[in-house]
Write a protein that binds this DNA or RNA. Structure first.
Length: 277
DNA sequence: CATCAACCTGATCA
DNA sequence: ATGATCAGGTTGA
């Protein structure tokens, strides 16, 4: 199935916003719902194998977002952002499943991208459905009532919180779907009622699952970058607030560009690359 | 409201 | 090789 969409798969799937994508000999393999999908970059979009649900794929890639408009808007912020937008014009935000996004970002607490990936895959292999080469992300019931052994997932102190979340979603105490129609602040507040979800994780979920473009998650990398490039320091709320103030209509996209720039600069020590103004 | 130790694992350093 | 150090958010004091 051919998807025509302005998107850079490497930047979009490889920078840590979603945790189930693996690049295997030039193609991106991931799991959407109960299907293993494989994506191959093309000039005008990508080739998609493993699913026929075009609507779901377009929704996942937030095809309705007008990247030209968004990046034009972001570019007006300053020269640094303008260069980032120009360098990675196909970096998109994704629209992830609320339950899966909530659960994976609960695991993401105090862990680097590589470790998050290994914890998430472990949970899928332990509790999810075997789809062949990969496993589905488990439903709350599969975790809460399943016969898998959580100890094998090596979640550390996230283990108790993870099991508690699965249980509270199964019982309806926390209902990811019910947050769909809330505004950013209410959504964030609801998420932070969950044990193990603080400001940063709540901002990530608000952005990546519920599409709140004004969310500006501040992790360790963003915190250093805001300090080094913009001279912004202080508490989480101060830095996040400054991000929302500074980056106009699309702080979430700006954050993703900034985060991606830190991935690039740490993975390739190239001369003549991007550097602060 | 700000500060800070404790929490767990895997990677990297000495 | 083995032990020390570090990276990474949330919680509760």
């Amino acid at each position: 199935m051919r998807i025509e969409l302005s998107v850079d798969l490497d930047a979009t799937l490889g920078c840590g916003q979603a945790h189930r994508w693996l690049k295997k000999n030039g193609r991106w393999e991931g799991v959407l719902g109960d299907e293993i999908v494989t994506l191959s970059q093309r000039e005008d979009g990508f080739e998609c194998e493993g699913t026929s649900d075009k609507e779901a794929v377009l929704s996942y890639f937030r095809a309705e977002d007008d990247l030209d408009e968004i990046y034009a808007d972001i570019s007006e912020t300053d020269g640094y952002m303008a260069r980032l937008a120009e360098a990675v014009p196909g970096l998109r935000l994704l629209r992830q499943d609320p339950w899966e996004c909530t659960a994976t970002y609960l695991l993401a607490v105090n862990a680097n991208v590589k470790r998050i990936g290994s914890m998430v895959e472990a949970v899928c292999e332990e509790f999810g459905k075997n789809l062949g080469r990969r496993f589905s992300f488990p439903e709350p019931e599969e975790i809460d009532e399943g016969c898998g052994d959580i100890c094998r997932c090596r979640l550390g102190y996230r283990e108790g919180r993870f099991m508690k979340l699965a249980n509270s979603v199964r019982t309806g105490e926390h209902d990811p779907l019910s947050l769909t129609n809330l505004d950013y602040q209410s959504c964030r507040d609801k998420l932070m009622e969950v044990d193990g979800i603080g400001p940063k994780v709540a901002d990530c979920i608000s952005l990546f699952a519920y599409g709140h473009m004004e969310s500006f998650p501040v992790d360790a990398r963003i915190s250093r970058l805001m300090r080094d490039i913009y001279g912004v320091t202080g508490s989480y709320s101060k830095v996040a607030e400054e991000g929302r103030r500074r980056f106009g209509k699309y702080p979430g996209y700006a954050q993703e560009l900034l985060y991606h720039s830190t991935v690039i600069s740490t993975s390739q020590a190239q001369a003549g690359g991007l550097h602060p103004v």
